Simulated assay, not measured.
Amino acid sequence: MRIRPGIIATVFDLAYLTLTTNLLLVLGCLPLLAVALTTDTTRSWPLLALLAPLCAPALCGVFAVFAAYTDDRSTTVASTFARTWRASFRRASQLGALTTGVLVVLGVDARAAWGHSVGAVAIPLLATAAVLTTAAALLALAVLAELPTARLRDALRVSLYQAVRHWPLTLLSLVVLVLLQTVFASRPAVALGLAAAPLLYVVWANSRFALRSVLRPTAGRSVATGH
Score class of each variant (00 low, 15 high):
1 M>S: 13
2 R>T: 15
2 R>H: 11
13 D>H: 10
14 L>C: 08
17 L>V: 14
20 T>Y: 04
21 T>D: 09
23 L>Q: 13
23 L>K: 08
24 L>F: 05
25 L>K: 00
26 V>L: 09
28 G>V: 12
33 L>C: 04
34 A>P: 00
34 A>M: 14
34 A>R: 12
35 V>S: 07
38 T>H: 14
38 T>W: 09
39 T>L: 10
40 D>Y: 11
42 T>C: 01
42 T>H: 13
42 T>A: 15
43 R>S: 14
45 W>T: 06
46 P>N: 12
51 L>V: 12
52 A>Y: 08
54 L>C: 06
57 P>I: 07
58 A>H: 09
59 L>Y: 06
66 F>D: 10
67 A>N: 12
68 A>Y: 06
69 Y>M: 08
69 Y>S: 04
69 Y>P: 00
69 Y>G: 02
70 T>A: 15
71 D>K: 10
73 R>C: 04
77 V>F: 02
77 V>R: 03
78 A>F: 11
78 A>I: 13
79 S>N: 04
80 T>W: 01
86 R>S: 05
89 F>R: 08
95 L>F: 07
99 T>M: 06
102 V>A: 12
104 V>H: 00
104 V>E: 02
105 V>N: 01
107 G>V: 05
109 D>V: 08
109 D>K: 01
110 A>P: 04
111 R>K: 11
112 A>D: 08
114 W>L: 12
117 S>N: 10
119 G>I: 10
119 G>Y: 06
121 V>K: 00
121 V>L: 14
122 A>G: 03
123 I>H: 02
123 I>W: 03
124 P>K: 14
126 L>W: 01
126 L>P: 00
126 L>F: 03
126 L>Y: 02
128 T>L: 15
129 A>Q: 06
131 V>C: 08
134 T>W: 02
134 T>P: 00
135 A>V: 13
136 A>Y: 00
136 A>V: 02
137 A>Y: 00
138 L>Q: 07
138 L>I: 15
140 A>R: 01
143 V>K: 09
144 L>A: 07
146 E>F: 05
147 L>P: 00
147 L>S: 05
148 P>N: 12
150 A>N: 10
150 A>R: 09
150 A>C: 12
152 L>R: 03
152 L>K: 04
155 A>E: 04
156 L>C: 09
158 V>W: 10
158 V>E: 14
158 V>H: 09
161 Y>P: 00
162 Q>D: 14
163 A>I: 08
165 R>K: 15
165 R>D: 10
168 P>D: 15
169 L>A: 15
169 L>C: 01
171 L>D: 04
173 S>W: 02
174 L>Y: 03
180 L>A: 12
180 L>W: 14
184 F>T: 06
184 F>S: 05
186 S>P: 00
187 R>T: 12
188 P>F: 10
192 L>D: 07
192 L>H: 05
195 A>V: 15
195 A>L: 15
196 A>Y: 07
198 P>D: 05
203 V>L: 02
204 W>F: 11
206 N>A: 15
206 N>P: 02
209 F>R: 11
211 L>G: 02
211 L>V: 06
212 R>K: 08
215 L>Y: 02
215 L>G: 03
216 R>L: 05
219 A>Y: 06
219 A>S: 14
219 A>R: 14
223 V>T: 13
